[in-house]
């Protein structure tokens, strides 16, 4: 199958937004779900959360940060070219989508970090369309790394910005801003945090103090994304779960983040090795010490 790229936009350094023609996925996607994407016949299957979808147009938007060979490969594709595979939607939709009645009258706080801001958007949008109040904190290292601020402002009750260096909004970490909001007397019924694993871990630790229900969306390693491989195993409440079919969203206070972070790094050295080979190859260098053919 082929999935043409309809739009492509650079959101921040190394962060791209792509809108892809995938009518079946667009029709079935719900907030909280993800897709598996592959570029080229030799490409890796990469799980990416859905940032937006338009059933009528038959398109789905994904946001990708170039962190390795495969994500870079996806991002080199231009409008008019096509992704080789775009399978989904996978995983369960967010709980409030499955049980909209339970969300009524509640007040949500979303905490979005880095590229994790993208999958927060369809959730806030959905709540907004269903008349549920949701505030959003978007966190980034610095002003230039902030994404989706305009889109989010349009659907969030209140949008807060936090940057590590203070170049925009609150000067500090999202957890510090969260503490400040609570100290100011803001009341939330539920927190949803999506971002780097380390951020989600500290959000969970912070909200635990307040006894505040918190949901996280895990970006575990996956091969098939349909429950077949178990690469995405995560310990939740002392039980092993598969992120792809049991998640990707879990109760943050039950997740073993240290294990999840360790497992996420499983192939990092292997990826770096391949990236180095790729760079060498691109530079026209032929490896003579056997790195390229183990």
């Amino acid at each position: 199958m082929n999935y043409p790229i309809l739009e492509k936009r650079l959101l921040a350094e190394n962060i791209w937004s792509m809108t892809v023609e995938a009518p079946r996925v667009a029709r079935s996607a719900r907030p909280g779900q993800f897709v598996i994407v592959r570029a080229g016949e030799t490409g890796e299957r990469i799980p990416l959360t859905v940032a937006d979808y338009d059933a009528e147009r038959g398109s789905v938007t994904i946001v990708i940060q170039t962190i390795g060979v495969s994500t870079r490969k996806i991002c080199t594709l231009e409008v008019g070219e096509a992704l080789t595979d775009f399978a989904g939607p996978l995983g369960h939709p967010s709980e409030f989508v499955l049980h909209p009645d339970a969300a009524e009258g509640r007040r949500y706080l979303f905490i979005a970090g880095g590229v994790g801001t993208a999958p927060v958007y369809p959730q806030v949008k959905w709540l907004h369309e269903h008349g549920v109040r949701a505030d959003v904190i978007i966190g980034a290292k610095t002003r230039d790394m902030l994404i989706y601020t305009d889109e989010m402002r349009a659907v969030a009750d209140t949008l807060h910005i936090a940057t590590d260096d203070g170049s925009a909004g609150f000067h500090g970490l999202v957890t510090q801003l969260l503490e400040q909001l609570v100290a100011q007397g803001e009341h939330y019924d539920e927190v949803v945090a999506i971002g780097p694993m380390i951020m989600m871990k500290f959000v969970a630790a912070t909200t635990r103090k307040y006894g505040l229900k918190t949901t996280v969306s895990l970006n575990a390693l996956m091969v098939d994304g349909t429950g077949m491989c178990g690469a995405c195993r995560v310990t939740v409440g002392g039980r092993t779960r598969f992120t792809c079919v049991d998640g990707p969203e879990f109760d943050a206070h039950e997740v073993d983040f240290d294990e999840a972070m360790r497992r996420q790094a499983m192939y990092r050295s292997e990826e770096q090795r391949r990236a180095a080979i790729e760079a060498e190859r691109a530079a026209g260098h032929v490896c003579r010490i056997g790195l390229s053919n183990r």
């Binding site: 299957r45 098939d224 077949m228």
Partner: peptide, 18 residues
Amino acid sequence: TRTNLMHAYDPTYDTPIY
């Protein structure tokens, strides 16, 4: 799956295997 479907044994493919 990494080996068969994703050809991790072949360095021209991107999927890693440990």
